[in-house]
Design a protein around this nucleic acid. Structure first.
Lengths: 177, 177
DNA sequence: GCACACATGTAACAGGTTACATGATTTT
DNA sequence: AAAATCATGTAACCTGTTACATGTGTGC
């Protein structure tokens, strides 16, 4: 699905912050980055093997603090170059936003269709809930100025997501009137 | 990639409006529906074969007006049932919005990073252009009340896209200040 | 003792993109 | 005559999802 393969960049970007295991990366996708990107653990492990094969990351396996055996990955010079060259590039191409509700709306031609109100109610519930969740996250992560400054990019993204979701909710509210 | 297979629904929905050829459907994706969904012609033809195999559409091949041989598809009772049952369902699950610019922002921790301004400028240019395009479409397709009422769903979608894009542009503008 | 989180993988399959292929008709 | 558009398909490949698979550590 995504036409552009960005997973390698995400993994390099995350590993660049500090060395990580596949499981650490999986966790990142469940919390932080999960707000705007998703991937399954199976795909992470596959991609890590590929990146290591390319020499863009290197691994060290061992028992750290005599617990379970883990494999830590750290970024190499080559990997850092690839990451930087991506961050420097302007090649972004706008992709379409695939939204199932919007799709249904398209096929409901009439504003009197009885299905419209039900769909709207449900979508409103879901979107409102999502907005609440995002606001909670913002409160949790960025309640102080220091927190915002320390992770400016992440703050901006969360702010963006909140604005987008709020606009979505407004749009739905107008439709429901 | 979409985790949910919605292409069959789109094709059924489009064919339900009127009988169409694969090429007609391809054209739909380039104009109307292309604003919020994309697919390649190879995929369309494959999916049409599958839908016909399922008995959800049926085809008639022939020379219409002694030109090129075309294959027209029309929806069957079974296909219409599947379409309706999808339109009636509330199973929408919110998927994450994968946006490359947002991803880069995440990895640029500092607001002083020199790459930030360049990326911003470029993204602003692209988004502004997209917004202009959407406004043109609205003007072209829905300048009269009748046009809006005749295709209410489509109008709502375009309105939504414009709001979303406007919010994106506002967000970028605030960042650039 | 049991459930849950930690930790890492493989295999089968489905969906989507890119490239390959071909040929007719219409427009410049 | 050449180029663009109409019209339909196949094949190779890649990404991502789902399911299968296994084993350890920790908290109740």
């Amino acid at each position: 699905m995504a036409q552009k393969n960005l997973l390698p960049m995400i993994l390099l970007g995350l590993i660049n912050i500090e060395k990580k295991t596949g499981y650490d990366l999986k966790k990142d996708f469940e919390t932080e980055i999960g707000e705007f990107w998703s991937v399954k653990h199976s795909q992470i492990y596959l991609e890590l093997k590929r990146l290591e094969g390319n020499g863009e990351i290197k691994s060290t396996t061992g028992f750290y603090g005599n617990k379970i055996e883990k494999t830590y990955y750290e970024i190499t010079k080559k990997g850092k170059e690839r990451l930087d060259s991506w961050l420097d590039s302007y090649s972004d191409i706008l992709s379409v936003n695939k939204d199932e509700f919007v799709l249904k709306l398209y096929f409901i031609k009439s504003r009197k269709d009885p299905r419209l109100q039900d769909l709207l109610q449900e979508q409103y519930r879901q979107r409102k809930q999502k907005l609440e969740h995002l606001l909670d996250r913002k409160e949790l992560l960025f309640s102080t100025k220091k927190e915002r400054d320390d992770n400016y990019g992440h703050y901006l993204i969360l702010d963006h997501a909140i604005r987008r979701e709020r606009e979505y909710v407004n749009w739905l509210e107008e439709m429901m009137k």
